Amino acid sequence: MDKPLSGKNALVFGIANKWSIAWAIAKAWHEAGANLIIGYQGERLKKSVEDLLSELSGENPPLAYPCDVTDEDQIIQFFSKTREHFPKIHILLHSIAFAPKEALEKNFYETSRQDFLKTFEISVYSLLALAREAKALFSDGGSILTLSYYGSEKVISNYKIMGPAKAALESAVRYLAYELGKDGIRVNALSPGPINTLAARGITGFTKFLKECASKSPLGKNTEASDVASAALFLAKDESRAITGQTIYIDCGYSIMGF
């Protein structure tokens, strides 16, 4: 069986449960031969993540360590533990986003300062924080990936504060791609269509929107997590060496449609 990522070391942030896009990507990278270390958000998710990782077989079972991206000390400790196992890394997935429930229920203009700052800290600044610590471990260059959404450039009525946050995230991708390019590090965002994850179900009217996207997309269907994993696998491989600073849509064509 072909193992295009054999010998590659990957860090994955953002696995919460079996529906997570990050989990689909982690599985694809593992099956392609990558060695994985997972960063999970606190003790609450520890057992869930460990149970999922137990499903992955192979000579090098994935490792998992806590990494609260709002805590600089935990980020530093995570990368200290990473260095104990990996002398260098080749791939990093940032699949982290959060907005307080209140911010998703109010009008956007009613967003509080506290909720705005918390959303941007976790959903955007965390990419910078992880990239900064990871930079020294990308001694042979490599690929950093994050996840965005179409609400970054068009208004999705119930997406609220997350739209501006994803817009900022995509801008951060471009600036990181520019600054890290001299070190051979590529930075890209994947922008999937709506996927039936646990987090997405928290958005009002999501089920209706899911059906609408399927009916209007050129391919007449919704995106699956496995579709995103396939794109993430390509961007982790050397064949994607000339792609950086991009937001790549994986939405069955929905984003190209006008009225």
Rank of each mutant, 00 (worst) to 15 (best):
E153M: 01
H85E: 05
H30A: 09
H30V: 07
Q114C: 02
Q246K: 08
A134Q: 10
P66T: 12
G205K: 02
R44L: 02
F78I: 11
S215R: 15
A172E: 14
F120G: 12
R174S: 07
E224G: 04
G181Q: 11
R113G: 01
V124R: 04
G193M: 03
P164R: 07
R132I: 09
Y159L: 05
I195N: 03
E55I: 00
D73P: 05
K160G: 03
A165L: 05
L233Y: 09
A167T: 00
L219M: 14
S240K: 04
T70D: 06
N60S: 14
G7H: 12
V187H: 06
D140C: 08
D251R: 04
Q246S: 12
K46H: 07
Y254K: 10
F116I: 14
R174A: 05
L198P: 02
G181M: 12
G7E: 10
L233W: 07
V155F: 02
L36E: 02
N188D: 10
Y178G: 09
S57P: 11
Y178V: 14
S148E: 00
A28T: 00
A24C: 08
L52R: 04
I203A: 05
Y175I: 04
I256Y: 03
T111W: 04
A134T: 09
A232S: 12
P66Q: 09
G151I: 04
D140M: 10
I195Q: 06
V124T: 10
Q77L: 12
L190C: 03
E59R: 15
V228H: 06
M162T: 04
G142P: 05
F206G: 08
I21A: 00
R83Y: 09
L127R: 02
S54H: 02
T146D: 15
E31I: 09
S80Y: 09
G220W: 03
L53T: 01
W29Y: 09
A236S: 15
F78K: 00
F78T: 08
K101V: 13
A97S: 15
Y125H: 11
P62A: 13
S191C: 10
R241P: 15
A165K: 04
L233S: 07
A225S: 15
E110K: 04
K81S: 13
G42F: 07
P4G: 10
I243P: 01
A64P: 09
Y125D: 02
Y40D: 10
V228S: 11
A214D: 10
E84H: 11
G142N: 06
L5E: 01
R241I: 11
G184N: 13
R174L: 06
S148H: 08
W23E: 03
R186Q: 12
D227C: 03
F108E: 14
G141Y: 08
K88V: 02
R201S: 10
